[in-house]
Simulated scan of single mutants.
Amino acid sequence: MPAADSALGGYDPQAGRSERHGLHAYPAGADRVPTLIPLPGLLRSLLTEHLDPGYAAAAAERQRTGTSRRPVVTRAWQALAALLIAAVFAAAVAQARSTAPGVNAAQQVLAASVRSSEGTTDRLTSRRDDLATQVDDIQRRQLRDDATGRDLLSRLDALSLAAATTAVIGPGLTITVTDPGMARDLTDVSKQRVPGSRQVILDRDLQLVVNSLWASGAEAISVGGVRMGPNVTIRQAGGAILVDNHPISSPYTILAVGPPNSMRDSFDHSGGLQRLRLLEASYGVGVSVASGDGLSLPAGAVREIKFAKQIGP
């Protein structure tokens, strides 16, 4: 083994010779020979040969021919694969361009259908409200003739107010919340409230405000012109806020009928207003709280009763 090769990987040519019984320990002409410790061939190969034999053969072939040539078949397959990928992309682009007009037409048809359905819903709602008003007038005329009817009518009025099925006019508070449309460039990424959207006000913000108004003594509340009552929810649907499945948009107007002074004092220290003030300072949300007289709240939708259970005596 050459000296240069034997030095690779820390291999010592004298490895395996006993220093205690080496040649230098015996005088010239002695019969004894040095004791050798066998060194396994695999270990010697790992210490001296760091490259796979295939690499050495390839290097030798490249050095002999002076160049490295790839087989023609390999290059042909690579060219064919590149052409196939280009053909797939070209077909996808052509298909996208051919279907674009149809997609736009379908979107326009769907938008027109939605607008037509909304118009029909509004007309039916107005018709339902008119019929409900007529029924209420007939009911009152029939019940106000005797004492029993008047007592029943008084109880029905109280229940209608609790069920939000009666329109209300009175003093109270007007809370207006305006979404800025774009949040400020804050370094804290956790303040991105809706990923990919410029919306700042969410359903949970309005829910907290409404609950705070109830706790402050409000007798009737409407959000975006929709009366709050039993089974009425405020939900987030993508970038839209739905109140009883009716979409509302900024500015969000919340009306609360009740004693304005005491209700204002309680609401000023509530969690709902504190949340709005925090959004105002962090994102530039517009928050306005004002007292007023003659606030008009519409009647809520009448819910169909499936079953009822008496609670208490």
Rank of each mutant, 00 (worst) to 15 (best):
P2F: 14
A3H: 09
Q14P: 15
Q14G: 09
R17V: 10
R20M: 05
R20I: 13
H21C: 07
G22T: 00
Y26P: 03
R32C: 12
V33T: 06
V33Q: 13
L36Y: 10
L46Q: 11
L47I: 11
L47C: 03
L47S: 02
T48Y: 06
L51D: 01
D52A: 15
D52R: 15
P53S: 15
A57K: 08
A57E: 13
A58F: 14
A59R: 11
A60P: 07
R62K: 01
Q63T: 14
R64N: 10
R69D: 03
R70A: 11
T74N: 13
A76R: 06
Q78D: 03
L80E: 05
A81Q: 13
A81Y: 14
L84P: 04
A87P: 01
F89L: 12
F89K: 07
A90R: 04
V93W: 02
Q95E: 03
P101L: 01
P101M: 07
A105C: 07
V109N: 13
E118C: 06
G119Q: 10
L124A: 11
R128G: 03
D130H: 15
T133I: 14
V135L: 12
Q142M: 10
Q142E: 06
D145P: 13
D146I: 05
A147S: 13
T148F: 07
G149C: 08
L156Q: 05
A158H: 14
S160E: 03
T166I: 14
I169V: 08
P171G: 01
L173P: 00
T174N: 07
D179V: 04
G181Q: 09
G181R: 04
A183D: 00
A183F: 02
D185E: 07
L186S: 06
L186C: 04
T187N: 07
T187V: 05
V189H: 03
S190F: 05
S190I: 04
K191D: 05
G196R: 01
S197V: 06
R198G: 12
D203G: 03
R204T: 00
L206Q: 03
L208Q: 11
V209T: 06
N211K: 12
N211T: 15
W214M: 01
E219Q: 12
E219H: 09
I221G: 05
V223E: 09
G225Q: 07
G225E: 12
P230F: 05
V232I: 14
V232C: 10
V232M: 12
T233L: 13
R235G: 12
Q236K: 12
V243Q: 00
P247S: 11
S250V: 02
P251T: 04
P251N: 03
A256E: 02
V257M: 00
G258P: 00
F267Q: 00
R275H: 06
L276S: 08
R277T: 08
A281D: 10
G286A: 10
G292C: 05
D293R: 06
L295G: 08
L297E: 02
G300T: 03
G300I: 01
R303K: 06
I305K: 02
F307K: 08
Q310V: 15
